[in-house]
Write a protein that binds this DNA or RNA. Structure first.
Lengths: 223, 223
DNA sequence: TGGTCTCTGGAACGCCGTTCCAGAGTCCGC
DNA sequence: GCGGACTCTGGAACGGCGTTCCAGAGACCA
């Protein structure tokens, strides 16, 4: 890898793993998950598909690199807070929002877990669980539950946003689903029918944080 | 749809949506997510790809139908229990195991949520949350948190199982990852390094249930 | 018996991830 | 200053995919 030391570049801006990953992120954000193809990426970088394969092994590696970059940037925004409770909530929100802004990251995290992206989240959460005073034997469980919940909800929230092809207004979308829930069979879906109104009014982010608090309460109560 | 009333069949067993979905489930279980192609499915059904399209609109609809069938069968096994706590745990375990046995269901649930499969889980969990005595305004939040956690952990657990192409022994796999964690940078990943041993020994299912209990404790404590 | 409607399945289309490879540009030993 | 080796490029090509098309087989009705 002596490449970086080379003085001059052949192209205006030489192809590099970083430039490819950045272009991939742009493409994914602009065109959605299906928009990322090696041909489209090559066009955007003014080159051919073959050139990309010199820097990246395959599409899966490209997706891992792209999601790692997004998660790392998001976590970088969370500074050390005074109270563990607060920092856990901050990390959760930042991850939630990163996946909301880049829905393809969510899909990627559930396909290829325990790569760098997820490990970073686990580490940050784990330290705060420790700071909360959770005893050694229960830390792994508590941190795992939190991370699973954070990723799980974020992925599903992002999936909801991707549901309809023309990006539809959130309020309209909830209105529609809520109406569908109200039409459900009263025998089969009594509960869902009853909470249909709450679906329309609910705030994903607030609901998400309420879940975090539920888990934190559980962790603290059984400490 | 007067088809079902037709007395005689052209083939030994006529093609039907149900037969196609069953064959798709078999194919997915046998060959993995990438094994389901319309060509392979056509071969298994001794027909051509075009015939399948008469019964199913596209691949996405086929995947939705297949996961709905698997989840419905799994939930069907859970009878009404006396105590809501118990039934919630039973539902959680059954979903966890169904996704573990059919990992492709997990991937599907995070791509297309809020279809029948997820709704069924939500409904069953919601009723028990209500039975727990959670007040009306908090039921939606509690049920959502539980469902998100259940799906989130199950999907990630299933994704772990799919990680390596030749199905590797679970203990070996954990041993390897645990060893990798111990090799992590001490500055960057102190927590993860510390719990590496717990990763090796932990039981996914038990950990999953511990998380459920954590949330249930939280729900009960803040009731 | 002829027409219509349901259903079949093979052929073909366009796009994808990936591989191949001729060659352009750069560096290094002599 | 020159020749070979090595890095990197990008267009062409391959096999496989989801999907569409359509000629026609079989069952039903007038």
């Amino acid at each position: 890898m002596a490449k970086a030391t080379r003085g001059s570049e052949r192209r205006e801006e030489a192809l590099s793993r970083e430039r490819i990953v950045d272009a991939a992120i742009e493409l994914l954000d602009d065109e959605g998950e299906n928009g990322l193809t090696f041909r489209a990426l090559a066009t955007r970088l003014a080159t051919g598909p073959g050139a990309i394969y010199w820097h990246i092994a395959n599409k899966s590696e490209l997706l891992v690199a792209a999601s790692d970059a997004v998660v790392a940037r998001a976590l970088g925004e969370v500074l050390a807070f005074a109270k563990p409770h607060e920092e856990i909530r901050r990390i959760a929100v930042v991850v939630f929002e990163a996946i909301d802004a880049h829905p393809w990251v969510g899909a990627q995290l559930s396909v290829a877990p325990w790569r760098t992206a997820m490990l970073q989240i686990f580490e940050r959460i784990g330290r705060q669980v420790q700071a909360l005073g959770v005893p050694g034997g229960a830390r792994f469980t508590a941190a795992s539950a939190l991370v699973s919940y954070i990723i799980g909800v974020s992925v599903q929230n992002a999936a909801n946003g991707r549901l309809l092809d023309p990006p539809v207004d959130r309020a309209d979308f909830l209105e529609t689903v809520s109406a569908q829930w109200k039409e459900l069979d009263a025998q089969e879906y009594p509960f869902t029918r009853n909470v249909a109104a709450q679906l329309r009014e609910h705030d994903d982010r607030a609901e998400f944080l309420a879940g975090i608090d539920l888990i934190l309460t559980g962790i603290t109560a059984s400490r």
